[in-house]
Design a protein around this nucleic acid. Structure first.
Lengths: 100, 100
DNA sequence: TAATTAGTTGAACAGATGTTCAAATGATGA
DNA sequence: TCATCATTTGAACATCTGTTCAACTAATTA
């Protein structure tokens, strides 16, 4: 588990920080958490977590750029879902820490 | 692994975001990474990652408040070290994600 | 084609964040 | 006690970030 420590260079550390920055906002965390249940359209996400559609859309763009969610269009709607099972692992790990 | 999902409430999600926010800065990530090697005084950390002592001290305060590092005084120096092995797990998980 | 539904986009704004600088604190040794 | 070393602290500053609002695009249906 510790064998790759020495392979982290400055660029990689910066990338790591960028990734965690994405998780470091409660709106985005709520969106990700909502998407654990099921894929959803933007309007449904907004209703679920009580944000405007525009704000959710802006945040979804960030999540998508970072490969944490993916989308598919179906008619007028665009359904978003989690892109990667690391997402859950990372959240679970953080949760473990704060619950101590 | 998924059994605790439904126990995340809004407050807990906000706490989670706060935790990730702490990881979401490259200076703090570099400090944590430096401390994987060994405990260090503030000046040595500053040298290692090329920051001013003051900037490092400010960031160490944030890391300490969030229970990611702990400190002990020995004479004039204050040695910092990682407080929790979740720190490494969380970093390792993030690293796994960006390396895909 | 016009109206409607669903979502995106960009500019503007307010609030948060990280660094710097200078001053202050605490421990040690002369 | 005075000087020095190691670190902390607070204010000021510039930058970054998230939300809002209005305008826009895309797909569907009347």
């Amino acid at each position: 588990m510790t064998k790759n420590r020495e392979m982290m260079n400055e660029k990689e550390l910066t990338e790591l920080a960028e990734l965690f920055k994405v998780f470091g906002d409660s709106s985005r965390i709520k969106i990700l958490y909502a998407l654990f249940e099921t894929e959803m359209g933007v309007g449904d996400i907004a209703d679920t977590i009580d944000m405007t559609i525009s704000a959710v859309s802006h945040q979804l763009r960030i999540l998508k750029q970072n490969h944490l969610v993916k989308s598919r269009r179906d008619g007028k709607s665009i359904f978003y879902s989690l892109d990667d099972d690391h997402v859950y692992k990372i959240l679970a790990m953080g949760k473990e820490h704060i619950e101590e």
